[in-house]
Nucleic acid binder design. Structure first.
Lengths: 147, 147
DNA sequence: CTGATTGCAAATGCTTTGCATACAA
DNA sequence: TTGTATGCAAAGCATTTGCAATCAG
């Protein structure tokens, strides 16, 4: 487990290097938070800022957080998800997948690709091709049947 | 056709009234723009502001445009679509439907409900129920086969 | 009249930018 | 040393809010 983390850490340095990103203290810390645990999650720049502040490992300026998130996105280590209005959400899960969006608390959850099956899909307009087809399932509270 | 517009216009007044919205000059003008032509479209508050400015019918303050859009949304005459990042898009098509999003030019197009069929869908988490399931198909340019 | 609506300008919230300082190679 | 990256504070947008003036019923 410790070994795993070390390996992850080392591989992160390599990944950054191979993408032309210098493995700076700030980038490593951010990557540790984002990719250290191996569960996928969604977050905003400010979420990440808070997590880092709470871990109270040396602080990172918000500007650097934004820079780094965009760099990681450009290199394909993060996806950007546009769902709830005005904030930019990032997703550590870069594979093709679907989402639940819970309107009661503005939270986003992954749905793995194989839990959804699309049977019929329109053809792309001329000169275009389909890049991805993602399903967004909006949830609301079920007051009649709380299970 | 003129009759149709007049009817639309009249029905808009009625609609507004029946939703408890006073048919003010500003609201009528906005509704005329949004629902006068009977094709569905997508727009931002600023788009609407420009359209109204260009038509150079009496100007409407941006704050009022925002207010009105939110009122119309609340009454179910508009849908809000969150797709391309930081701006809020509205959609005059309030029926359940899907979208193409063309990444080459950031444009959104409707896909009618019956062009898509979802075969398998996950069950909602406890205490929640599914409100809608919408498919977003991202498009990119097809450079190999322009048709 | 009386409460709803408008319009302005100021305020807010998220994100980006400019630029001097610090750092990695 | 040399170009990259960081951090701060300021600027930039889209959107919202407060409040006085205006309008609809």
């Amino acid at each position: 487990m410790e070994d795993n983390k070390k390996n992850n850490f080392k591989s992160i340095i390599d990944k950054l290097r191979s993408s032309g990103l210098r493995p700076t203290r700030q980038r490593l810390l951010i990557c540790k938070v984002l990719f250290g645990e191996n569960k996928d999650f969604h977050f905003t720049a400010e979420d990440l800022d808070k997590i880092i502040k709470n871990n109270n490992e040396a602080k990172i300026s918000l500007a650097t957080i934004y820079n780094t998130l965009h760099s990681l996105k450009k290199c394909g280590y993060l996806n950007e998800v546009s769902i709830s209005g005005n904030k930019t959400y990032f997703d550590t899960n870069t594979t093709s997948h679907h989402h639940f969006f819970d309107e009661a608390n503005n939270s986003l959850t992954d749905i793995s690709e194989n839990e959804v099956e699309i049977k019929k899909i329109p053809i792309a307009p001329k000169g275009k091709k389909i890049k991805t087809a993602q399903v967004l399932i909006r949830l609301e509270n079920d007051n009649h049947n709380q299970n």
